[in-house]
């Protein structure tokens, strides 16, 4: 069966060790977590965890089954095949070295990248998009010499309900 990336949204009771339970049960059973985002919801007692993992349908079913067994898990949804939007965010620092400076400025202009810090020696960009947009941007950033980068996991919003 075909393996692909799945985005799973998990509503949980906001308990101190709930993340450890989720990471523990998936790690312990040998499933891989590609990315993980924990966010607040409008209710204080409930948090939302958005997780991405790679697997075929069978594996994803098992992951969902394991998650549902956890006492603190309220609801599990696979957002991959429902109408939903997905975003990631990256922060990138590019050093304005003498040889790259012009090239960087040009790239920022043509790509309409958002500069959030502009210093003499470096700039910091903030980029958001879905996975393919981020990957596309990264391919263009690479030749400019990435001094440092940080990337969030996927956050996703279900448009179906």
């Amino acid at each position: 069966m075909e393996k692909k990336e799945h985005i799973i949204s998990i509503l949980v009771h906001n308990k101190p060790d709930v993340l450890a339970r989720i990471a523990g049960i998936l790690g312990g059973k040998g499933y891989n977590i590609e990315s993980l985002c924990v966010n607040a919801t409008t209710q204080y007692e409930v948090s939302k965890i958005v997780m991405t993992t790679i697997g075929n349908k069978e594996t994803i079913n098992r992951i969902e089954g394991q998650l549902r067994r956890l006492v603190d898990v309220i609801q599990v949804d696979d957002l991959t095949n429902v109408e939903s939007i997905h975003r990631e965010l990256i922060l990138v620092r590019l050093n304005l070295t003498a040889d790259k400076k012009e090239q960087i400025k040009k790239a920022v202009d043509t790509n309409k990248w958002k500069v959030i810090v502009s210093a003499d020696a470096y700039i910091v960009l903030e980029l958001t998009g879905d996975k393919s947009q981020i990957d596309f941007a990264l391919a263009r950033l690479e030749p400019l010499g990435i001094a440092d980068i940080t990337r969030t996991g996927v956050v996703a919003l279900d448009l179906d309900d």
């Binding site: 060790d17 450890a20 049960i25 312990g28 006492v71």
Partner: peptide, 11 residues
């Protein structure tokens, strides 16, 4: 002990 027994308790 809650950390140690997380994988071997129901909760």
């Amino acid at each position: 002990i809650t950390g140690i027994t997380r994988p071997c308790t129901k909760h």
